[in-house]
Design a protein around this nucleic acid. Sequence first.
DNA 1: GTTGTTGCAAAGAATTTGCAACATA
DNA 2: TATGTTGCAAATTCTTTGCAACAAC
Lengths: 133, 133
Amino acid sequence: METELREAGLRVTRQRLAVLETLKDRTDALSAQDVWAEFRQRGETIGLSTVYRALESLQEAGLLDSFDRDGEQAYRFCSTSHHHHLVCLSCNEVEELQAEIVEEWVGRVSAAHDFQVTAHRADIYGRCANCKE
Amino acid sequence: METELREAGLRVTRQRLAVLETLKDRTDALSAQDVWAEFRQRGETIGLSTVYRALESLQEAGLLDSFDRDGEQAYRFCSTSHHHHLVCLSCNEVEELQAEIVEEWVGRVSAAHDFQVTAHRADIYGRCANCKE
DNA sequence: GTTGTTGCAAAGAATTTGCAACATA
DNA sequence: TATGTTGCAAATTCTTTGCAACAAC
């Protein structure tokens, strides 16, 4: 955990570690406000803006994925390898997906359109096995 | 244009038509603020909140696609059939893509994970042929 | 010791809401 | 006429910023 921070050129601070620790064990995505609420609840005191800054830097470092959730940004701990997502809109669980097919598609499209690809996303939304009644 | 509104159960108002008209002829995505600025520039007077409400209702009606652009929502006129996007981050042009492969992938994933799919997105971002130097 | 980080309060920006006037059907 | 829609201003909500105190290296 600390190693990853150092490799990303980020200092190892109590606050960043706390944010990472909070997200590390869960599979659902949390917003900055969510994370901050968790801290308050536990009695940990961390500034809200610090949470915003931590999430941003951790995402840039590739340790977190981010999702748009109706006007706010939500974050989830993620693996370093490229992947796509299966997102449950009910419980916010996010499962990572590997998809060679999608990569091939992206390659084909970019070539056909003379397009310089900098990123792509392929996410599936709905209700997970637990949430669909 | 008016027919589509009626079919969606929306009243045909000067404001909604103006919003549609503005987006209809362009291939880039505009935010509510952008659309409103266009109106001001042309001397058309429409309330900003009306623009927000119009864009939302038109999107729900399936006439517009929406994209997240760094904290704000951007909209683009779109075809009724399902499609994906090739988005230029430089000029905001959005090209629609058909991709049977992606549909197959979604079907396979949902089956394998016992997941009830309600939506999916597959978008490619980068610089279009015109914008890459 | 340097320099990146934090925390707070204030500022910013996008978006939503209440409600009376109004337009559409 | 009945009901959806508009416009305005105020209120919300998420997020960012300035800056002095502080912690990491």
